[in-house]
Design a protein around this nucleic acid. Structure first.
Lengths: 192, 192
DNA sequence: TAAAAAAGAGGTCATTTGACATCATTTTCA
DNA sequence: TGAAAATGATGTCAAATGACCTCTTTTTTA
């Protein structure tokens, strides 16, 4: 029987043997709601696949405001790029919004896999490409969209997350205040 | 004798034979000031290296506002990721701010190089990683920084570009109005 | 289950920001 | 070189936004 993760890899075209090797080096971890995988200042040592639950990558500004860079629901990958790549203390932290189950790979192990399993390298490159596209889109939205457009874009892009997130986190992700988010939502109700 | 581009590749650790193959497939192109490499709606067919000059990647919103996603000065690479990767009409355009000289590679040619010159693939991966870091940083700045902080960050990050760009383009890059940019600059003068 | 904490709705108000317009200066290019 | 275009500085004003506050409801947890 395949685990859920193995089915995920199979669905993305990886052959059985590759799947076996990748799974073999993973360790499992559970995070309770509001628990952290690591906080600002710690080093991001693992590549992370989210089996179940929902994580957030956040950054805290000097004045104490928290900004959410990314939500990572089930079947997504996450890490703090900068900290992982260079193994330096992170500026961002990752925490669980819901009770979550993760698979972790130590960086050296994952690098070994990338070097020895060509299909994994190809798949990882695809994920990075998608990430680059999404970043572009997010930058453009942040630059040019009104709060209303940002919210509509969020709803369109992550329809499934809307009901799982407190509004203040959506506001934090969009870079607007909770007040403004409420105004947008209220205006939309008026119109419909 | 090495061309400037070949020296650039050598400086980044690529061996002579690889450099030769990469150069061999490039074509040159000159853009005059305000000329476009391609506009919104066209397909981005080339990978681009800027030998001299300065390009901008911009996006025009439905209401006619232009937003600058990226400046590409000499010795940087550029393209419209989405359009290049999938060979679909671009949402962004690329144009010359200054008279510029470029090297272009057709996508199939560059893919051949990536497949056959392992050092190029490694180098390209490094460039992508840097791009991902920069995107993160830009997203965070867009979300959390005040106009003043955005401008200071710009000056810190691209000290050399400041004098080469009209202020309205800097404002467009930062996602603030020219008016606000002027206010910020004026406030800084007051203080110093 | 009861107390505590978090979430969120909404009011008020000061501030920031952008839209629009004008004018002087600089740059471009025919 | 001289006309035309672009640049950018600045004023005015209205609108958008966030900070701060209170109150209610929901959720968490001890």
């Amino acid at each position: 029987m395949l685990t859920e993760f193995e089915a995920y890899l199979q669905m993305h075209g990886l052959p059985g043997e590759a799947i076996h090797r990748i799974s073999g080096l993973a360790t499992r971890r559970t995070l309770r709601r509001n628990e952290f995988l690591f906080r600002t200042g710690e080093i991001c040592r693992h590549k992370v696949f989210v089996l179940k639950g929902l994580l957030r990558t956040y950054n805290t500004t000097p004045d104490g405001n928290e900004h959410i860079l990314q939500f990572s629901p089930e079947h997504s990958w996450t890490l703090d790029v900068e900290s992982y790549d260079r193994q330096v203390p992170s500026l961002a932290g990752i925490g669980a919004i819901e009770h979550s189950e993760l698979l972790l790979w130590h960086k050296p192990d994952f690098n070994t896999l990338l070097a020895e399993v060509p299909q994994l390298k190809i798949f990882a490159d695809q994920l990075i490409a998608r990430n680059v596209h999404q970043s572009r889109h997010r930058i453009l939205t942040a630059l040019s969209a009104t709060p209303e457009e940002k919210y509509e874009d969020f709803v369109r892009t992550f329809p499934g997350l809307l009901s799982r997130l407190p509004l203040r986190m959506i506001a934090s992700y969009l870079g607007i205040s909770l007040k403004t988010l409420n105004r947008v939502r209220h205006a939309q109700l008026q119109r419909s």
